[in-house]
Computed example of a mutant assay.
Amino acid sequence: MKTLITGGAGFIGSSLAKALVARGDTVTVLDNLSPQIHGASADESPLLGEFPRGVRFIRGDVRHADDWAQALEGQEAVVHLAAETGTGQSMYQVDRYVETNIRGTSLLLDHLAHQAHSIRRVVVASSRSIYGEGKYRGPEGDVYPGMRNARDMRAGQFECLSEQTGEPLAVVATDETSKTHPSSVYGITKLVQEQLVLMTCGAMGIGAAALRFQNVYGPGQSLRNPYTGILSIFSTLLLQGKDINIFEDGEETRDFVYIDDVVESIVLTLDAEHARQAAYNVGSGVATSVLEVAQTLKRIYGAPGELKVTGDFRLGDIRHNFADVSKIRDELGFQPSVSFREGATRFCEWVRSQTIEDAGYERSVAEMRARGLMN
């Protein structure tokens, strides 16, 4: 298959490019080498240098129609990964996120609608952020809580509560039929992006699928980007001998899915011609607390930094979300195979081989405080 990967020089895209080339596909990568991800000397990005022989690289931007036209020529499939991805940053760089994630996708679809092409398959990277808070259960049945109250969180009440009893709700796995109610600008853009691709490609007779990724981690993840990836953020701080300030009470949970499993999910979806206009959760199906992540990394690194549970919180952050992956398992045969403990060990081994620089995390926190987005 001749496949275009947008954002293909990034964390997920570069790993996918290797997997597709290894099985004999012809791969083209479109990427703008964003300094936030690749650093100031983007041409020296280690991920770019690891492309296997034969990958065609185009330095371009999904916000430019001419770059799309060049990249799409002769392709049979598109894996659309290019996006701005910082949940917190999206709350104060709204136009940047809308322009890249929504307009960038609209230019792809506009090209497919008006120009001759050979595209028969589109896979778009969606996100667990489209759900906002995850799925809960209480006396009233299934519950999808809205954004938490800042007053409650200042008082140390972080859990989502039943409106009937005032007691904490029980979190359960989020499936694809769960309510979508994003609590960040990033989540809104990913939901619109997913809807645009599934609806428009369906109208044009192009098979399309959206993969709702949970928290992806593993070797190759940017250690320079202070807005995404708590494993990268925590690793950088610990290896600099710094303390980690853990938000809320540390018991907030996420679903961490290893990069190899994510690549496998994309390959399966590319090949699944029967999966048309479908959305799938991609995760480990296991909830892991932020405090457990920090403790695991500190233990593996043997780092001296302290773990400080601060009670700070960011507006728009969710409390819990982990994936029900039964749909992608039953329909495409996907089965996550790397546990968090194993994946964290592999990740830390890779991090130790990298040059650790100041990623500007403290600066990003200060920006959110200055804008009233963090308490």
Rank of each mutant, 00 (worst) to 15 (best):
D175T: 11
T85Q: 11
L47R: 13
R363L: 06
G316N: 09
R371N: 09
Q157P: 00
N215P: 00
Y227G: 08
L373V: 08
A65G: 02
V94M: 09
D142E: 14
S162C: 15
L332P: 10
A287P: 15
I259H: 10
S222Y: 04
Q115T: 11
E342N: 14
R59K: 15
G311I: 00
D31F: 02
E367Y: 06
V55E: 06
A272K: 01
R276E: 07
V267F: 02
L268P: 04
V309H: 03
G39R: 10
D43K: 13
T228L: 07
W68T: 11
K327W: 01
F158E: 00
H80R: 04
A370I: 03
A40E: 15
E273F: 05
S129P: 01
G60H: 07
V185I: 15
I102Y: 12
V338G: 12
A65V: 08
V29Q: 07
D31P: 06
E264W: 01
T165L: 09
A65W: 01
R23Y: 09
E133M: 01
S265W: 08
L169G: 05
S184N: 03
Y217H: 11
L237R: 11
S265F: 12
R137H: 14
L81T: 09
Q193T: 13
K298W: 00
Y258G: 05
Q221N: 04
E194K: 06
L169P: 09
S162E: 09
E349F: 03
F247T: 05
